[in-house]
Each structure stands twice: as structure tokens, then as C-alpha cells.
Amino acid sequence: MEGILNIILLGGMAVTAIAIAKMRNLFVVTMLSGIYSLLSAGIFVLLDAVDVAFTEAAVGAGITTVLFLSTLILVGREAKPRQFRMQAILPFLLVLAVGAGLIFASLDPNMPRFGDPNSPANQRLAPEFLADSVPQVGNEAPTRVGIPNIVTTTLASYRGYDTLGEVVVIFTAGIAVLILLGAARRRREDEELEGPETGAKPEPPKEDSRMADASKEAPGS
């Protein structure tokens, strides 16, 4: 059952992604990427990653869609059609290279099969996490956190530092948006500075330079 659902949902994702690539109406693209997010969240549920599904739904289908809509209001909905150019070959080759690299890797017999409980990934660190018995430095007995949701435990404690980093990332994004768009009034420096050369406005000179004019000294004076 799960396998079939998995195949259907993933297939749906692939189809959606290809459709997104072809669409030009940005609004439609946004809607489709919402569907894409929902689908991927569905897959996460299937793959037992409920926390991830939770987040993906909230972020991918919710916040991101709203953000894209907000942007579309400001930038317009329609992407212009592109005629085929020779330069388009290069990205295509790059894409093929990336794909080939992954296919190459996937065909390796070591590549863990779907759901394989004996794969290294599921054997190495996971057992200790799942048993909630991870050793601490200087402790004989492994320390137990004692919270049922192992994802939360891992997230906030075992790899709590990553999560601190994550919070800082989102903090950074917030500040970044504030810097870029958070203007109390409309700024016009972009428009002003569309000339060929731009840059900061120079400060007016404060005093005459002492060495300003060494070239005009009269010889023999």
C-alpha cells in the first residue's frame, strides 16, 4: 500500500515539476509549486517523516506560496517566452552531467535500497538515537533525554547546535528582508543611480590637502 502510494505521489511530483518547467504564467507556477509542496509533504508522511511533513506543509505550501504571491503582485505575473538559443545547450549539458553523476552513484550496489533497515544510515547512529541512549563525554552510562519524539530530541539536544544555526539562518533571512525591503518610505537611489557609473556619493572635501599641488612648485625658488 505504502509503496504504491509512494510511487503515485512521487510520479505526481515529477509530472508537476516538469509542468512547472514549461509554464510561463508565474501565478500558475506558484499554484503548481504549492501542489508540489503538498505532494512532497505527503511523501514525507509516507516515509514516516511527520515532522518534516509538518514543516514542509507549513512552509512550502503556506508561507512560501504567500511570499510568492506577494512578490508576484510587485513584479507581475507573466514570464516572457524565450526563443531557443544556442546557450541553452550548456545548461542542458550541465543538467545531464548532474543527472549522470547521480545515476552513476545510484547504480552502485552499495546504494541502500528503499526501506532497507540494514543500510549503514539506519545502522550507524540511528539505533542510539532511537534507544535514546547517547553517550555524553565523561559519563559512564549513556544519558537519556526521555522525550518520546526522537526528532525533537535529536533536533534540540543531540544536534542542538545545528538547530541554533538554523535559527540564525532564519534570523538572517528576516534581517535581510528588512534591509532590502523594509523601508519606511520609498527610496529612490536605485533610480537615481542608473547612469553608467555609480557608487557612493563622495563626501565633500573637508579641508584643502596639504600635498595637493606638489607639481606646480617653481624650480629655483
Binding site: I63, S70, L74, F171
Partner: peptide, 18 residues
């Protein structure tokens, strides 16, 4: 706290820009 504040901030800023 951070996530909520940032998300609301971002939305406010975008919508405010409109």
C-alpha cells in the same frame, strides 16, 4: 519566537511594499 517573528516580519514587509 524567532520563526514567528521573522515570518510575520517578512510578510509585513512584502505586503507593505505593495
Amino acid at each position: 519566537l524567532t520563526v514567528a517573528s521573522v515570518m510575520v516580519t517578512i510578510f509585513f514587509v512584502f505586503a507593505g511594499r505593495q
